[in-house]
Design a binder for these strands. Structure first.
Length: 443
DNA sequence: TCTGGGGTCCTAGGACCC
DNA sequence: TCTGGGGTCCTAGGACCC
């Protein structure tokens, strides 16, 4: 029987989506086993919104993206453990999970911090199920993170399977939709149970338009005429529909596409009304962005700066703006980028507003090594200056890597304690896995 | 007093060139 | 003096993702 099932699948792709359950909450729980049965939530930057909820927190009716201040008392009354987000911890836990997964297949795409697509071609039936269960067990055992696995003959169907899996405890963490590929009634039943807005690629806007046309389930979406979909949802939407029909349109992307932009921005902990505060923040974000640029061996051709007031405060007058500027030659040298960003901020900063957020963007990215030369590079002395600049950046990056970010920084970014604009982060857990000093807190 | 951050892709329309 | 079409590149806006 298993052999027949295997033969059936021969030659057609099998996609598995491995998804960490409530990932950020699960990361916090790994180091706090006492929270195993307590509701847990993790907040966005600035402790603004709830961005991860444990199953218990979901049961309390805490919605994804719920503003923390509105739910604070409910969370306190229910004894919910609340954490600020701790990306150093989540990023490190993520790479541990991914490294376990990668031992199960040569074809894997890390899709996000908590999800990976795997090709498991050639497996079917009981063998496929056993393989997926083994993966789950090993991830759990080696990292402490619970995952679920959805399996289908396209990426979109694997996503559907993963959703069904999480909604159905009887699945025991694995749902294999390839079992039903040849049974139209079974496929219909499964897709009928999935609300159209839960389909990968269908967001709020499309869901509203689909509802207006009487389309509420994944099955109804699958059965729409191609030309309507093409017209209202572009080719991207058409790919989604074809994939729901079992026609693969999306490949596994083993190597990440080259990055096109780097954005760094934060909301302020308090409204900013001083130009100097805005300048400090822009300098701080640009310093981070430039460090990321160098970490990835890229140069930026363009610099952008944006500012925004708080749109939620209707009583405040509103203002938002964004400017970009092209550099004479691409660079990764922080002082040059800082100077340019400061000039851009001055171009769009208006007095008399309460600013909520500023940010910087680097674009026109290109690889630092092996790029096409620029006439300006050939000016006398320029090569030596570049060398000195690179050396300076290498030293400061190394010091910051060794002794912590901010060990070497620019006066323009503000001097520590006076950073009034800094975001709130009241409930951050220790960086257990990446910072020795903070590990000591556990003992 | 309080509502995140960082990305990608697609399309339409305008500028420009031949 | 008047008139054409097609290709390419760029940008802004809208949609989506986690």
């Amino acid at each position: 029987m298993a052999l027949i099932a295997s033969l059936k699948n021969a030659g057609s792709p099998v996609f598995a989506l491995v998804d960490c359950n409530n990932f950020y909450c699960s990361c916090e729980r790994v180091f706090r086993p006492d929270l195993a049965r307590r509701p847990v939530v993790v907040l966005s930057n600035n402790d603004g919104c709830v961005i991860a909820r444990s199953a218990e927190a979901k049961a309390l009716g805490i919605a994804m993206g719920a503003p923390y201040f509105k739910f604070r008392s409910r969370l306190e009354r229910s004894g919910t453990a609340v954490f600020s987000s701790n990306y150093a911890l989540y990023g490190d836990m993520s790479s541990r999970v991914m490294s376990v997964l990668s031992s199960y297949t040569p074809d894997m795409e890390i899709y996000s911090i908590d999800e990976a697509f795997l090709r498991l071609d050639g497996l079917a039936g009981r063998r496929l199920d056993a393989h997926a269960q083994a993966m789950r067990r090993q991830v759990r055992q080696w990292t402490g993170i619970p995952v679920s696995v959805g399996i289908g003959i396209t990426k979109t169907l694997a996503k559907v399977a993963s959703r069904v899996c999480k909604a159905t405890p009887a699945c025991d963490g694995v749902f294999d939709m390839t079992r039903y590929r040849d049974s139209a009634p079974a496929m219909d039943r499964i897709l009928d149970s999935v609300p159209v807005e839960d389909v990968w690629g269908v967001g709020r806007r499309h869901a509203a338009r689909l509802a207006a046309r009487g389309v509420f389930s994944a099955r109804q979406l699958r059965d729409l005429p191609d030309d309507w979909v093409r017209r209202h949802m572009t080719v991207t939407g058409l790919h989604t529909v074809l994939e729901l029909r079992g026609i693969p349109c999306l490949e596994l992307e083993a190597a990440p596409a080259p990055r096109r932009t780097i954005v760094s921005s934060r909301s302020f902990g308090h409204p900013v009304e001083e130009r100097s505060d805005a300048h400090e923040a822009v300098a701080d974000y640009m310093t981070r962005a430039a460090a990321k640029l160098r970490r990835e061996s890229l140069l930026a051709q363009s610099v952008g700066v944006f500012v925004r007031t708080n749109a939620f405060r209707q009583e405040d007058s509103q203002y938002a703006n964004f400017v970009t500027d092209t550099l004479e030659r691409p660079t990764d040298y922080t002082p040059h980028l800082l100077r340019r960003a400061a000039a851009l901020l001055d171009r769009i900063y208006r007095e008399g507003f309460r600013y909520k957020k500023v940010g910087v963007m680097l674009s026109g990215l290109e690889p630092k090594f092996g790029r096409q030369g620029n006439l300006l590079d050939c000016l006398p002395g320029e090569a030596e200056k570049d060398k000195a600049r690179d050396a300076l950046m290498q030293v400061s990056d190394a010091l910051n890597a060794r002794y912590g970010r901010g060990t070497v920084r620019y006066a323009a970014g503000g001097a520590g304690e006076e950073r009034r604009w800094h975001m709130r982060q009241a409930f951050r857990s220790p960086r257990y896995t990446t910072t020795w000093e903070e590990l000591a807190v556990v003992g």
